[in-house]
């Protein structure tokens, strides 16, 4: 028994570099040798899927890319999935960005979709700019941008991301403000993002909206799901994996689930051993 206690105490005092190496291996090995784990849909993700699926076909939808490269692994798979789902249902997509890096994320997502081919080497989505989607681009101002979009979109965006005048673009005909969209979606990694879209976009206009957020944001955003201000929510990379499963296009999020699972197991293992060592040390200190 004492031998076992000594081992636990030694594990409890392990150098942090050992933890770093183990976490690194826990993430790296599943990424290099893909392991398939079952993904189970949660009610908030199903609600999110249904929300997008229930938008009347061939509608105009606004998708906001409110994240950057740092949170790309979590948010990007969601946004790619949302674009796929919306394009599949024939919607016209209007892309805005509240983050300066968002435009690059949007370009990457669109490139990923346009490059996608089926087994017969034919493009899955035959989409064209200014017909199926338009990249409005980034505008600084956070809440002010959303408020501007809610009142008059053309005052916020006089030109699109390519520098073309909005008034000259046929796809923009009939779009005056947020009320002209059937749905708003924000892939958000913080400020400005989901909160701002709910407060200044979705709530004042009554346009249904949903969001995909990082895992750490879920705690704060979840009240909006219960009140119906958000139609479902994609919560972090697990949410993205569940959504990929629902739209039946397995992607990087499902692949990443094994790495995340093993990393979480390693963290839980260290928490448990850290606590065991803590209690054993306390007991020994009391004895002597």
């Amino acid at each position: 028994m004492k031998f076992l206690e000594d081992i636990i105490l030694r594990l409890g005092a392990v150098d942090r570099r050992v933890i770093f190496v183990l976490i690194g291996l826990a993430v790296l090995i599943p990424l290099l040798t893909p392991i398939s784990l079952p993904v189970r849909e949660t009610p908030t993700t199903v609600k999110f899927y249904d929300g997008i699926d229930n938008i009347p076909k061939n509608s105009k939808v606004l998708v906001s890319f409110d994240y950057g490269p740092s949170t790309r692994p979590e948010i990007h798979p969601m946004n790619v999935g949302v674009l796929r789902h919306m394009l599949r249902n024939g919607h016209q997509i209007y892309i805005s960005c509240l983050w300066p890096d968002g435009i690059y994320m949007a370009l990457d997502a669109l490139e990923e979709i346009t490059d996608e081919v089926n087994p017969d080497n034919v493009s899955t989505f035959d989409i064209k700019e200014y017909e199926d989607y338009i990249l409005l681009g980034y505008r600084p101002g956070a809440e002010a941008v959303i408020k501007g979009l809610a009142s008059d979109l053309r005052k916020v965006y006089t030109v699109d991301a390519n520098g073309n005048f909005i008034d000259d673009i046929e796809m923009m005909d009939g779009i005056k403000n947020l009320n002209d969209f059937a749905y708003i979606y924000s892939g958000s990694a913080g400020y400005p993002g989901t909160f701002e879209w709910v407060k200044y976009g979705g709530d004042p206009t009554g346009v249904p909206m949903s969001s995909g957020t990082t895992s750490v944001q879920v705690n704060e955003v979840i009240p909006y799901v219960q009140t119906g201000q958000l139609i479902g929510l994609l919560a972090g990379m697990p949410g993205a994996a569940e959504y990929e499963k629902l739209i039946n296009v397995p992607g990087i999020a499902i692949q990443g689930m094994a790495a995340q699972s093993f990393a979480h197991i390693v963290i839980v293992f260290f928490i448990v051993f850290g606590n065991l060592a803590f209690f054993l040390k306390q007991r020994r200190d009391r004895k002597y």
């Binding site: 942090r16 933890i19 993430v27 740092s70 692994p73 963290i267 928490i271």
Partner: peptide, 21 residues
């Protein structure tokens, strides 16, 4: 940017091991 954010995983593991009691 991705590297900076990824470092979080390592520090969360190390911090939770030492402080989550």
């Amino acid at each position: 940017s991705a590297t900076m954010f990824a470092l979080l995983a390592f520090f969360v593991a190390s911090a939770s091991f030492r402080a989550f009691r």
